[in-house]
């Protein structure tokens, strides 16, 4: 499950790794913008801006729609849920394994004759 998302997760991280792209996302989180509007604050060419937007599109963070002669970009925050998914997966993954380890060590515990080990439910979560 998580394994199959690895490539997509890579794209998401790559997209977010750049300050210009993060600024573009911030701007898009307010409302949709044309490519020109996205490029304007950065004093960069439309071609350079377009390159950044393509990276964001590849990660699925931005949807581009052609309206007449204008390309309108809109934010799609869904890929960020991959990160959430990673967290949930490993929370469960380690949780299950710690349960197993706990059970194994409990079953395996040598009980000293004079001082029996307290059988205490010891989960601290």
């Amino acid at each position: 499950m998580v394994e199959h998302n690895a490539a997509r997760l890579d794209d998401t991280f790559h997209a977010l790794a750049d300050p210009t792209r993060r600024a573009m996302l911030r701007s898009l989180s307010l409302h949709e913008r044309s490519v020109g509007e996205l490029a304007a604050p950065f004093q960069m060419s439309l071609a350079a801006a377009s390159k950044h937007i393509k990276v964001l599109e590849r990660a699925g963070l931005v949807r581009r729609e052609v309206k007449g002669r204008t390309h309108v970009c809109r934010l799609d925050a869904a890929p960020l849920s991959d990160i959430q998914e990673w967290l949930r997966y490993y929370e469960q993954f380690w949780g299950e394994r710690l349960d197993m380890l706990e059970a194994l060590l409990r079953a395996d515990t040598p009980t000293p004759p004079s001082a029996p080990t307290p059988r205490k439910k010891g989960r601290l979560r």
């Binding site: 409990r106 010891g122 989960r123 601290l124």
Partner: peptide, 20 residues
């Protein structure tokens, strides 16, 4: 950081849990 953290008490010495 993006992290998952779990805490768990074991009724076994740290050495045994470490070695596991």
């Amino acid at each position: 950081p993006i992290q998952v953290q779990l805490r768990r008490h074991f009724a076994a010495a740290a050495e045994r849990v470490f070695d596991a």
